[in-house]
């Protein structure tokens, strides 16, 4: 399998902070969408910043399209589209002028595509970016990211704070992008419902450590959450549990093969878990 992005044992610390990215490793197969989830401060943005060279990693390797990207590797950045949480464009500019800036920066800038995208998103290209709403800024950022014909999109909370209609529109754009099997997406999001719809894989990060990377369909259709009482809980082999969480009247146990678990322990209730619930167990639970 070829990978668009391979992160191997990435570590990163900041002076004066006890936050630490601890041997973060995961890869994105070419042609797929990777959802990146974890609570605030878990290390999603730091990981993405390290991938993009915005912060300097302490150790590990990061390969984009099979190569490590240094400051000089402009050709790689040419192929990577980025949307941050917030638009990050100079507020005094209008999108029309921003396009001129981008045309003077990206070799592959496709003005026609930019105009198509802004028209599709109903963006007024003559209005200053500073006067744009958050939703409009995000759509603009996406239009910019797609207009230099990237192969990898890195999206940090790109759908956060947007209404469901806009989000659906944006998800369509992502699926359109991924229609080309050379294209891949890394997207962090708090809105796991979005990821549940379109992601192929999900990576869970907690306190700077990767807890799990798994295919989304396996998470939803094969993983399960056992709802059990304390006496039932004692019967479960530790090796069969991925994580558990004690609640007031029941204990939730995450298992990675619902069918096998049901065969082995008859009579216990095993639910299908949502990404949110699986995250909760991986983050809050013990193992």
């Amino acid at each position: 399998m070829t990978y668009s992005l391979e992160i191997d044992n990435l570590t990163k610390t900041y002076p004066g902070s006890d936050f630490r990215l601890d041997n973060v490793s995961f890869s994105i197969p070419r042609g797929t969408i990777m959802g990146f989830v974890g609570e605030n401060g878990a290390g999603k943005t730091t990981t993405m910043n390290a991938v993009l060279n915005i912060v300097k990693k302490d150790g590990g390797t990061i390969k984009i399209f099979g190569r490590e990207m240094g400051d000089k590797d402009r050709d790689i950045r040419e192929q990577v589209g980025v949307v941050f949480d917030g638009a990050n464009f100079p507020e005094m500019l209008t999108p029309a002028r921003l396009a001129k800036v981008m045309a003077g920066t990206y070799k592959q800038w496709d003005q026609e595509r930019f105009l198509n995208m802004t028209a599709r998103f109903n963006l007024d290209t003559g209005k200053k970016i500073g006067r744009y709403s958050r939703g409009m800024k995000m759509k603009l950022a996406l239009a910019v990211a797609l207009s230099h014909r990237p192969k990898l999109l890195i999206l940090d909370e790109a759908t956060a704070g947007l209404d469901p209609i806009v989000r659906d529109e944006i998800l369509s754009v992502f699926l359109e992008f991924i229609e080309d099997e050379d294209h891949s997406i890394l997207m962090s999001s708090h809105i796991t419902g979005d990821l549940e719809k379109i992601a192929d894989y999900i990576t869970f990060i907690h306190r700077g450590q990767i807890r799990l990377t798994e295919s989304k369909d396996r998470l939803i259709y094969e993983y399960g959450i056992v709802r059990c009482k304390a006496e039932q809980f004692r019967l479960i082999d530790r090796a069969d549990m991925m994580a558990y969480r004690k609640r007031d009247y029941q204990i939730d146990v995450l298992v990675n093969n619902r069918a096998a678990f049901e065969r082995k322990y008859g009579g216990m209730v095993v639910d299908r878990g949502s990404i949110d619930e699986i995250m909760l167990l991986l983050v809050k639970g013990g193992d």
């Binding site: 991924i178 229609e179 080309d180 099997e181 719809k197 379109i198 192929d200 989304k216």
Partner: peptide
């Protein structure tokens, strides 16, 4: 990939 796009589900 085009079916995934049309029915809004992931490629995998």
């Amino acid at each position: 990939r085009s079916l995934a796009k049309s029915i809004h589900v992931s490629v995998i």
